[in-house]
Simulated assay, not measured.
Amino acid sequence: MTDLLSRLARTLDPETAHILAIRALGGWGTARAPMARPMPRLAMRVAGIDFPNPVGLAAGLDKDARAVTGLMALGFGSVEVGTMTPRAQPGNPRPRLFRLAEDRAVINRMGFNNGGLDAGIARAAAADRRGGVLGINVGANKDATDRVADYVAGVRAAAPVADYVTINVSSPNTPGLRDLQEGAALAELLAACMDVRGHTPLFLKIAPDLDAAGIDGVARAAIDQRVDALVIGNTTISRPALRSAHGGETGGLSGAPLRGLAARKLAEIRAATGAQVPLIAAGGIDSGAEAYARIRAGASLVQLYSALVYEGPGLPRRIVTELTACLKRDGFANVAAAVGAG
């Protein structure tokens, strides 16, 4: 199965490969794919949730919760599905997903394509989580006249089903969405979502393109509104030097070229929050060593997505094995002891 998924990822049109991989993983999950072996050294408690290991799948791969069980069986400690919007929407026109093989990167301008909250939440509720943690990532429809209302609807629908809900205000592919990361708009959004989340932890996903003032504003809002964790971060609209012919495509860049920027922003948000909010690192994580570096820099958990395209679906298990070796080498009894140790 994993060899098949690797070939799909590398040889087909990127979006076709994506669709077929989700179908394959969905079928694998219903065939009772095996659970990952428990690794007590890697267990982590964040926002009152017990994660079997700190390596999670970022939102974007399984937008409609079609393959939760199969993804959990790859060895992820958590799987975040979505982004889901209140109403189904097709997203942006194709082509909208580009594989930058020379750079081990991906550019996407998908635009929150998904089948809508009702269908996605129903599938998530029925999924066998295999002892892993399920997050649901919610967003606003492109044509929404009241985006705060869309987020409130998403949180209200997802909270009874999810172990945590992530508010995604950082996609660059919905015009004006990133404005919700700023000042009074962010405070209003968080307050409204907190009112309907019940006891379910609420996470906030931010962009790696925020400047110092933006980071300070997010940190203040997260602390004031008691956000349970910050995900740092989404794709970037910046463009480091890229070798691929697709390097000039519009959209969000992810993968290896994002590694340095994502690591810097993790350090900046850690300093801005004074370690008062748990942090989840994403962007360019493709090995146990890189996951370990982000944890030592202050991340309690890590997430990945684009690296699966190049490293294959065996990557989560390799990362948890390598991460365990890093912890043993440096004398840490568990992941929690290593958080911020660097």
Rank of each mutant, 00 (worst) to 15 (best):
A275Y: 08
E290I: 08
K205V: 01
T166C: 14
N173V: 03
G340M: 04
G176W: 12
D118V: 12
I237W: 09
V79C: 05
I237F: 15
N92E: 04
A59H: 01
T166Q: 01
A43T: 15
A289C: 10
P14I: 07
N334H: 15
P208C: 08
T321A: 15
D62M: 02
A297W: 05
A144R: 07
I167C: 09
R66T: 13
R45I: 13
M194H: 13
M194Q: 15
S78G: 09
A47N: 11
A336R: 14
G56F: 02
A272V: 00
E249R: 12
T174G: 03
R87G: 04
A65N: 01
T145I: 10
R23F: 00
R87P: 03
G48S: 12
L301H: 00
R270A: 10
R147S: 06
G29M: 01
A219H: 00
L12N: 10
G251E: 04
F332G: 10
V218F: 05
I295T: 10
R23Q: 11
T83P: 01
W28I: 06
I232T: 07
G274M: 06
R123C: 09
D64C: 07
S306T: 14
Q303M: 12
I136G: 00
A271T: 05
I319C: 07
A17I: 08
Y305I: 02
S170N: 14
M44C: 14
T30Y: 08
A341L: 10
R7K: 14
D286A: 05
A337I: 14
R243G: 15
G340R: 13
E182A: 06
G252H: 06
D118E: 09
L97F: 09
A9V: 06
V165E: 00
G154R: 04
D211A: 13
L258N: 03
G176P: 12
A127V: 03
D3K: 11
R96Q: 13
I22E: 04
M72R: 01
F112N: 00
P95H: 15
F332C: 13
T2D: 05
L4F: 03
R220T: 11
A9N: 08
G48F: 11
